[in-house]
């Protein structure tokens, strides 16, 4: 497979990532930047850390490289890749959400939203306790559910 052009992405830490254009246009935000001619030197992505950006690039690569066929095996492979991809810790997941939202990668966003929703749905108070220490946002939810739990126990 030969790519015509490479694109340079510069992230929050000033690090640069050289990626093939086919991979870089997966995120809609970057595609639009290239279309608008803002990508002559390098594309600045000030909102994304290098850890997250390399994860995003890994995801885009996988999706570009997987043949776009209706083949069942390829589809299943991509699905299991996505499934493993979102199996990250809370902090990474939330950074990913923000990055994906900024870069506008819709299909993966959907999957991450579902992952977070499932976290909110299936929590026992003990798990919430653990979660609360790790993350401040979902935390607010678990406080609420925990309060409910104790209220109902007292009654």
């Amino acid at each position: 497979m030969s790519y015509s052009k490479t694109i340079v992405l510069t992230n929050y830490d000033g690090e640069t990532f050289v990626v093939d254009e086919v991979v870089a246009v997966e995120p809609q935000t970057i595609e639009h930047m290239i279309e608008d001619g803002c990508a002559n030197t390098s594309i600045p992505l000030p909102n994304v850390t290098s850890k997250i950006l390399s994860k995003v690039i890994e995801h885009c690569k996988k999706h570009v490289e997987t043949p776009n066929s209706n083949e069942k095996a390829a589809k299943a492979d991509l699905k299991s890749f996505d499934f493993d991809f979102v199996k990250a810790d809370q902090g990474t997941l939330f950074d990913l959400i923000l990055a994906m939202n900024y870069l506008n990668i819709k299909e993966l966003l959907d999957l991450i939203y579902q992952t977070v929703a499932d976290m909110i749905k299936g929590k026992t108070p003990e798990e919430e306790e653990e979660m609360r220490r790790v993350n401040a946002w979902v935390f607010s939810c678990f406080v609420g559910v925990t309060c409910l739990y104790f209220k109902s126990k007292k009654m």
């Binding site: 939203y113 499932d118 909110i120 401040a136 946002w137």
Partner: peptide, 15 residues
């Protein structure tokens, strides 16, 4: 990670 914009929260709650 301690802040998610409201529109993202809405999308998560919808799930």
């Amino acid at each position: 990670s301690d802040y998610l914009p409201i529109e993202i929260q809405v999308e998560i709650l919808k799930k």
